[in-house]
Simulated assay, not measured.
Amino acid sequence: MSLPFVFRTIELDGQTLRTAVRPGNGTMTPLLIFNGIGANLELVMPFVRALDPDLEVIAFDVPGVGGSSTPSTPYRFPGLAKLAARMLDYLDYGQVNAIGVSWGGALAQQFAHDYPERCKKLILAATSAGAVMIPGKPKVLWCMASPRRYVQPSYGVQIAPEIYGGAFRRDPKLALAHASKVRSGGKMGYYWQLFAGLGWTSIHWLHKIRQPTLVMAGDDDPLIPLVNMRLLAWRIPNSELHVIDDGHLFLVTRAEAVAPIIMKFLEEERQRAIMHPQPAPARTIG
């Protein structure tokens, strides 16, 4: 049976961070979640509950989101990656596996690149290499440029099919359920997150990511067209691509189907090559 989340609010460099840990049994490397833009940690809980209950999971609200404080000046992705590493120190974690969703996928790439010793494996879901990405439709991107869907849940329900695609096109109840878990950190926090990614790209150092990497994409994703995930899988040396029959939020809408794929990836141990010594030549006695 899955244990309940343990919530803690911690302070780092004057920044208040709200964290949640789902305890595991200690046999597997913990999983750190980097969430999407404007998304508080409650939004990924259906996905976490679908994972093996023995897996310890760490989630947090980035600055300006949910229960974390909004900084007076914005972070860039390297600064947020450093903050995540310091959070792990505070919570007494060494090495973790990392999963990043959408905006959080960019942060996960930065974390894996800047702190390779802290990140054992990497999972990138519905994300891109940043500024060089092949963009979605202009109308969809315009909706994403505003925090309105988080500040005004009824608007979020209205536009969900168009921006998330997949199951949200077919089931209106999904948008209502999603909106009910939203905890807005306010408009400024959202704009600070947009600023974090302004002009950012990982394309020039993706080849330096050495962690085993699982790239996951929805085949009906209006925000991050599939070609972007193919680019990530092509540029990251030790990666595999898995395409899901769904939209942008397949981690939540297809949690029961996606969780076993992720668990299999996390449990795989790459076997080292065993070098068999050559037998010593027979010595003749004469």
Rank of each mutant, 00 (worst) to 15 (best):
P225L: 15
F265P: 00
F60T: 05
I244R: 04
Y164T: 09
V57R: 01
E267W: 11
G104L: 08
Y164Q: 13
M28E: 14
R49H: 13
N228Q: 12
V21R: 15
R18Y: 04
G165M: 07
A179K: 05
A112K: 07
R76Y: 01
G64V: 02
P279Y: 06
C119E: 01
Q158Y: 13
D13C: 01
G247P: 09
T70A: 05
G105Y: 06
F250N: 10
N40Q: 08
I123R: 08
M1G: 14
A81Q: 08
A282K: 10
D246V: 12
D52G: 01
V215Y: 02
Y155R: 09
I159F: 02
V140G: 05
A259I: 04
K208S: 12
A196V: 03
I274C: 01
L124W: 04
T213C: 14
I262R: 01
G130E: 08
E268I: 06
T19A: 06
P161H: 12
D221M: 09
A59T: 14
A177D: 14
M133E: 14
V57E: 01
L122I: 05
M28V: 02
M45D: 03
A39R: 00
L122P: 01
P30Y: 02
M28D: 10
S202D: 04
S180A: 15
H242D: 04
A81K: 05
M1A: 12
N228S: 12
D221H: 08
G166V: 07
K181W: 04
E162A: 14
E117K: 11
E267D: 10
H242T: 07
R169K: 15
T27L: 11
I99T: 03
A167R: 13
E117G: 10
P172S: 13
Q109P: 02
E56K: 05
L107W: 08
W103M: 11
L12D: 04
L141K: 11
G199K: 08
T27D: 14
A177E: 15
G79F: 03
A259Y: 05
P260W: 09
Q109M: 11
L232R: 10
S69C: 01
R76Q: 11
I10Q: 07
G105F: 06
